[in-house]
Amino acid sequence: MNLLEVEGMSKIFGGLVAVNDLDFTVEEGAVVGLIGPNGAGKTTVFNCITGNYVPERGDVHFQGKSIKGLKPHSIVELGIARTFQTIRLFSRLSVLENVLAGRHCRLKSGFLASMLHLPSQRREERDAVERCMQELEFVGLANAWREEGGSLAYGSQRLLEIARALASDPKLVILDEPAGGMNDQETSDLVNVIEAIRKRGITVLLIEHDMRLVMKICHKLVVLEHGTLIAEGVPDVVRRDPAVIEAYLGSDDNDEVY
C-alpha cells in the first residue's frame, strides 16, 4: 500500500521551475531515498510535502487523503514528521525540551488545566517526559537530556532532530540529509538508527548525498535532476541507469567544489 503519493507536483520560484511535474510514491514500511545533484529540488519537494510550501500544481496524498494546502502543524498531526537540512533545534532549550516539542501535538492539556496545574495535566506531563526520554535512549542521547540543544556536537544535533520527529508518533519521517556533516562513526550510528526506525514500522523518506549510505539502506530510490524525475526503482537498477550516471558524473565536479 502507498503511504504517500506525490502526483504531478510542480513548484515554481519566480521564473525558476524547482520541481517539475513530479510523480512518485512511498510504500508503507519502506525506506525510500530521494537523490539528485545539488539544486535538483529535493528539499523543495520535502517542503511541499510538509506544508512549508504549497505546490503550484499537483497534489500530495497521505494515507489516501489529500494534504495539499494544510498547515505544517496539521500535517505533523496527521503523522508526517521531518528534520531540516539546516539543523533547526531550539538551541537554548534543553535536549529533553527539544524532544517534548515533537510530543506537543499529542498532548491535550489546555490552558486552564495548565494554569491550575490539575492532576490530569501533571499525569500527562509525566508520561510525556517518560516517552521523550525513551526517544532520547533510542538515538543514544539520554544522558545529555539536560544540556542545551545548541551545545551538542553536530552529529548529535542531527540525532536530536530525529528524536524530536519520532516523539510525534509519525507514520512517515522525512529526513533531509541526515548524514550531512557527520563523520564515518556518526554515519554508521545513523544507519543503525534508520534501520531501527524502520523496524518500529515507521516509513522513512530521506534525502542523502552519501551514495554508499543510500545504497545500503534504501529499498527504493527516486532520482531528481533539475526538478524532474529521471529514474525510480530499486537501488541496484537505478545505479546502472545511464541517465543517473550522467547526472551524477555531471555533478561530481560540483560536489568537489563544495
Binding site: 514528521a81 515533537g102 488545566a113 495548565s114 510525556a128
Partner: peptide, 25 residues
C-alpha cells in the same frame, strides 16, 4: 511549566521549527 509555556518558548526561539514539529504557531 506546562506544554503551553513550552510551546510559547518554541515559538519565541524559532517559529518555523515550532510549526514544523507540530505546534500550531
Amino acid at each position: 511549566r506546562s506544554r503551553i509555556g513550552r510551546a510559547l518558548n518554541y515559538i519565541k526561539e524559532d517559529d518555523v521549527a515550532a510549526e514544523g514539529c507540530g505546534v500550531d504557531v
